[in-house]
Design a protein around this nucleic acid. Structure first.
Ligand SMILES: [Mn+2]
Ligand SMILES: [Mn+2]
Ligand SMILES: [Zn+2]
Ligand SMILES: [Zn+2]
Lengths: 150, 150
DNA sequence: ACCCTTATTGAGATTGAGTCTCATGAATAT
DNA sequence: ATATTCATGAGACTCAATCTCAATAAGGGT
């Protein structure tokens, strides 16, 4: 999954076709570590000159998610954010309600407690959503960052 | 908040008017402990014969939420579920992906860890979203329950 | 290289939860 | 009772995401 050739193979193993559209969406999502949404990706590709359709971007994102290459993140905005799973160990998120910053955190203790709670209730845990909302006091530019990022 | 007279007062303290529509929405939400959505409430009221509008149901829910009487629950279905906060200490949810059951859990350990993580990142925590998705092995009627509840 | 089959695409229509508009109606204060 | 002003209802509207379907192109076979 680190080089182009591999993405072509991931698709072929499922009998799916490798198109420049799919490659372009995957490349764009890989290209940075922010938590952008589908329309961000679409706009980037259009501005880079690709004649791609919004529907194809959405469809490709679903392909990437079903192959475990991308994760959708719903932070209650009415749209999905995305993140590639290349260098990723699982993590959850801290979200600043003022400036919008998204900080990642890992807590083996919480992960363990989740498993414990699930089995205590006779649940086979498949995944979880865990988000902490607040205000990032530690970033002095919280308000400035907000003004810069919509 | 347990008797009618009090809801009228809650509204009046904010200079808001007490209408039968607001009372009916609040009564309906109070009437059971499931996690229904706005349209469930609307349909119940219509079937009970109230000539209420969908817009009023949505608006009243927001009033109830802002007064701390109701909590919105987003479990990634594209719509909000609701729960009244009458007998409620804070809790989070286990959600069965097969039958749709929603089980409540409380974990003081996790709550404490959340605070710890937030302050470690210089965050002033305001609220959190924590949901465990899986399958409820402990309920033998999981499939049956699913078939009964859409 | 060329065909053929069939997955994929693009444009725009559609969906669905939730919000907004604004004329009409109702709740409260005096 | 009247006046004031907030709340309501019907339907238009928003916005992310999905769907439709005719046109296109990927990739296996020759
Ligand atoms: Mn992340
Ligand atoms: Mn609950
Ligand atoms: Zn901030
Ligand atoms: Zn179940």
């Amino acid at each position: 999954m680190t080089i182009n050739q591999e993405f072509r193979d991931v698709l072929r193993e499922e009998g799916m076709r490798h198109t420049w559209q799919r490659q372009a969406v995957w490349d764009e999502i890989k290209s940075n570590d922010e938590h952008r949404d589908a329309d961000d990706i679409f706009i980037c590709l259009k501005q880079a000159g690709y004649p791609i359709s919004r529907a194809t971007v959405y469809r490709t994102i679903d392909v990437l998610v079903s192959h475990g290459l991308v994760r959708k993140l719903d932070i209650g905005e009415g749209r999905m954010r995305l993140e590639h799973k290349l260098d990723s160990h699982h993590h959850d998120h801290l979200i600043c309600e003022n400036c919008g910053r998204i900080i990642e955190f890992i807590s083996p203790e919480i992960e363990a407690l989740q498993s414990k709670i699930s089995s205590a209730h006779g649940f086979a845990l498949t995944h979880h959503v865990h988000q902490l909302f607040g205000r990032c006091l530690s970033y002095p530019d919280c308000d400035y960052y907000r003004s810069q990022n919509r």
